[in-house]
Amino acid sequence: MKTIKVLSALFLAFQLTAYAQEKNDSNTPKTYAEISVKEGGKWVGQKYEGGTFKNVTSLKVPKSHWDHSFFIRYEGPGWESNKVGYRLYLDWRNAIDIFGKVTDSLVLSKVGQDGFESYHHMSSWGMDILKAGKALGIGSIGRFSGNEVLHFKEVDSTFAKVENGTKSSSVTVTYNGWKTAEDKIDLVSKLSIAPNERHTKHTIKASKKIKGICTGMVKFKDVELVKKESKNKKWAYIATYDKQTLVPDNLGMAIFYKVATVEAQPESQYDHLLVFKPTKKEVTFYFLGAWEQEKDGIKTKEEFYQYLDQKLAELNQTNKI
């Protein structure tokens, strides 16, 4: 009888320990978004000299800010899950870059504290793996003129904010007075990420209907673009998988979109594009990066496209992933 009581006590202790561990895991944040800017220094032309970084929850981008101004840590807001991280260049380029992670810990608060160069090299958490160049990177917004992608060179004001919750983290950017060609609009862009997921949900809303609003991803020479629609042609994706990182090694990239929202799929000099139909309604799409060095990640092209097909089926059934 005594032995049974001891075993029962040990089993109960094991159950309580497992429960406590599970509860602790569920309470541990698995997403994070931030924007960090310098204070205590000064602007010299379009460069910010001196100062130290401080996290803020919102930012109205100074008129002096341009690319490589050294004002915003890693050049814009960042967001991550326990699988992957992203950053948005909060300047005229407006491209989205990928932080590949070799850990399932949240790392963005450590990135770029010592300047721009360090995160372009492998560290204990991973590195910046995508070279966006003059392209949109992955999943960002531009306007296709028919010949080229117009970025955000003329904007009256840009306002960004970040939010962190238990179910997701997000970055919202409001562009007031974005001028391209003969049009001027306001555009709101919300980027959000959920725990245990690679994809970012991107919802955009324009203040008026104009042709050419687009998203896309950077294209690399000799890397095949794969396109697939669901059987009922409700959702679809475009994707690439190959050695397309700065390492270099294998990276899969994809954008999922609602077929009814897209007008055309042209190629620009630097991007595989999806051009949306003119609308003032919200448009939602999803994009993701899957790096071969990710912890417990996708290692082959076959695994990557199986993963995309599963996500496509999920979208087809539930209209969300």
Rank of each mutant, 00 (worst) to 15 (best):
T3F: 07
I4E: 08
S8Q: 11
L12W: 01
A13G: 14
K23N: 14
K30P: 15
V37F: 10
E39V: 00
W43R: 06
V44D: 14
K47A: 11
Y48I: 09
K54H: 10
T57R: 15
W66N: 15
D67E: 15
S69D: 07
S69Y: 07
I72L: 09
P77V: 11
E80F: 12
S81K: 08
N82V: 01
N82I: 01
R87F: 08
L88M: 14
D91R: 02
W92M: 13
F99P: 10
G100T: 03
L108C: 09
S109Y: 10
K110P: 14
K110N: 13
K110W: 11
Q113F: 14
F116C: 10
E117A: 15
Y119L: 13
H121V: 10
S123I: 12
G126I: 06
D128S: 07
K131F: 11
A132G: 08
K134Y: 12
A135T: 03
G142Q: 01
R143H: 11
F144A: 04
N147D: 05
V155P: 08
T158Y: 07
A160S: 08
E163H: 13
K167E: 15
K167W: 12
S169D: 05
V173S: 10
V173G: 06
T174M: 08
N176P: 02
K179L: 04
K179V: 13
A181I: 04
E182P: 04
V188D: 03
S189Y: 12
S189K: 13
K190L: 06
L191I: 13
P195V: 09
H199P: 10
T200A: 14
T203L: 00
K205R: 07
A206V: 03
K208N: 04
K209I: 00
I210A: 11
G212P: 05
M217Q: 04
K221V: 05
E224Y: 03
E224D: 08
V226C: 02
E229C: 07
S230L: 05
K234W: 05
I238C: 03
A239T: 12
A239H: 03
Y241M: 02
T245H: 01
L246G: 07
G252N: 04
G252Q: 04
M253L: 11
K258Q: 03
E263P: 00
A264V: 11
Q265V: 10
D271Y: 02
H272W: 09
V283S: 05
F285R: 05
G289Y: 10
W291F: 08
D296W: 06
I298Y: 03
T300G: 01
F304D: 04
K311N: 12
K320P: 08
